[in-house]
Design a protein around this nucleic acid. Structure first.
Lengths: 270, 270
DNA sequence: CAACTGCGTTATGCTGCATAACGTAACACC
DNA sequence: GGTGTTACGTTATGCAGCATAACGCAGTTG
């Protein structure tokens, strides 16, 4: 999260137009509001937020917050955008910690990061990929959609890498439907730079990776896998990723289940 | 949904102790409250409910509702239990519409029902398997857990059937971790009657089916697959189920993707 | 130093949850 | 068939949170 330490970079500020003192103070306050909101959400274990609580935590009164956010939805939108970015960062960093030559290892790292992030911050995960928050109506085609695309691209690039290196075998799930083939050939959701397309089977397999990964992650994050021991959850998670990788035609990684440390391996990135 | 038509069955009432007039009226009112709450949730597309709105819809005043539900959480809990039951019913009915000799067909039907139910009633789906509702704290070990077990059992029985008929091949995902094996051998979450256990590989595969299915279902129900055309979503769904079935060692069903009617096939069960 | 701008405050209105206090109609029993 | 009892629904009340309005203060700017 972008905290109030903007001053440090500004001392030798040459490139950017050097925000005024006021602007810096304002940015810091905005950051503090968001941090406080997240902290309260985390403490209370919910996704709802009370302006009065946030203000009190900050030693202010509630109406003051309206100087920074038009209303509750506005704050929520900002939190959602941040969450997307943060998740995307966590995933990208995890991916980059594994050498490019090991695509299934990368898929594993990415999946692990996704899972770990969601488990560490279930509220933020819920904000972006869970139930739309009760009173909240997302701004149409707004910044949230844009942020979602950025996050999605991370996964895609992994498969491009594997493709480039000839490491993609024959995907297990064949018989790609014509409709999915269409999507594979003109990707509407990806950014601009990579107008490249994946083979339809790989595209389908990639989506399947995400779907399966998301299924486990959301079930776990919301406490619906509590009937399993932590070790069993780890094992189930690994088996799922392994299956998805296999189905995508990625070379199988060596079994990792021995260490049993799958759940807490990722050192965290936020 | 248990509606207000209790009277019809009571005319020839022989078995049950024939509830008094008052009790019937009360039950009818409770049912009406729940129905109204669901309708409003559906209309507003959220999972929050306002006592005042419900009461107004029913031509009453808000405080009257407290005669039937202690508070908002109490009503929510009732809705959650109902939703579990309803989903379990839908799944069971779908399963029973396919002959026992066709386990992968049954898995497909079950998955389809799960998906269709969630898409038809995303709010109720969110209630039971989504983010815990903001202000809501589930009663510990209460009726919701119990209801969840009942729903889960549906899936399990399908695999027992297949097992009994010798239709279970070798599951694709081997290497079952010891921790999962433990769970397979003494199922803590299942009901009472079926103390039977599944082979660990099958147990793991069953969980994987659920995880994968749930991933697709929740993503779709909450609108996160909107970037795909409906046909592409259908295709992705089928591919996922097929893969999960394959991984579980179920005999492959004949390809269904030709009809393209996967999304709207299920005639509905609520 | 005087006008401006932005920030934070108190004051106010509205809505929803929840309880209290009260009336009323159906039921139950002799 | 009256009479106490019970369940139901009402109006009245208190409280919390969102959001706006009106005001005061301080740092900024010419």
């Amino acid at each position: 999260m972008s905290s109030a330490s903007t001053e440090a970079t500004a001392t030798h500020g040459t490139a950017q137009p050097m925000p005024s003192r006021r602007e810096r103070a304002r940015a810091a306050t905005i950051a503090e509001i968001k941090e406080t909101a997240l902290r309260l959400m985390h403490e209370h274990g919910t996704t709802d937020l009370r302006f009065s609580d946030i203000a009190r935590e900050m030693g202010m009164t509630a109406p003051a917050l309206y100087r920074y956010f038009a209303d509750g939805d506005d704050l929520l939108t900002a939190l959602i955008v941040d969450a997307y970015d943060d998740l995307a960062d966590a995933v990208r960093e995890a991916r980059d910690r594994v050498p490019e030559g090991d695509p299934s290892g990368r898929l594993f790292a990415v999946s692990q990061a996704y899972r770990t992030w969601a488990r560490r911050e279930p509220q933020r995960f819920a904000l972006i990929l869970g139930t739309p928050v009760p009173g909240y109506a997302a701004p149409e085609e707004g910044p949230t959609t844009e942020a979602a695309r950025r996050a999605m691209t991370q996964l895609k690039s992994l498969f491009f890498d594997a493709l480039d290196r000839g490491l993609l075998g024959e995907p297990l799930i064949g018989d790609v439907d014509e409709s999915l083939r269409q999507h594979a050939e003109n990707p509407q959701y990806s950014g601009r730079a990579d107008e490249r397309t994946l083979p339809p089977e790989t595209f389908q397999a990639m989506l399947n990776c995400w779907v399966s990964l998301h299924g486990f992650t959301s079930l776990e994050a919301y406490g619906h896998l509590e009937f399993l021991s932590p070790e069993a959850r780890d094992a189930l998670f690994e088996a799922g990723v392994r299956l998805a990788a296999m189905a995508a035609g990625l070379p199988l990684p060596r079994a990792r289940s021995e260490s049993g440390s799958a759940g807490s391996a990722d050192p965290g990135t936020t």
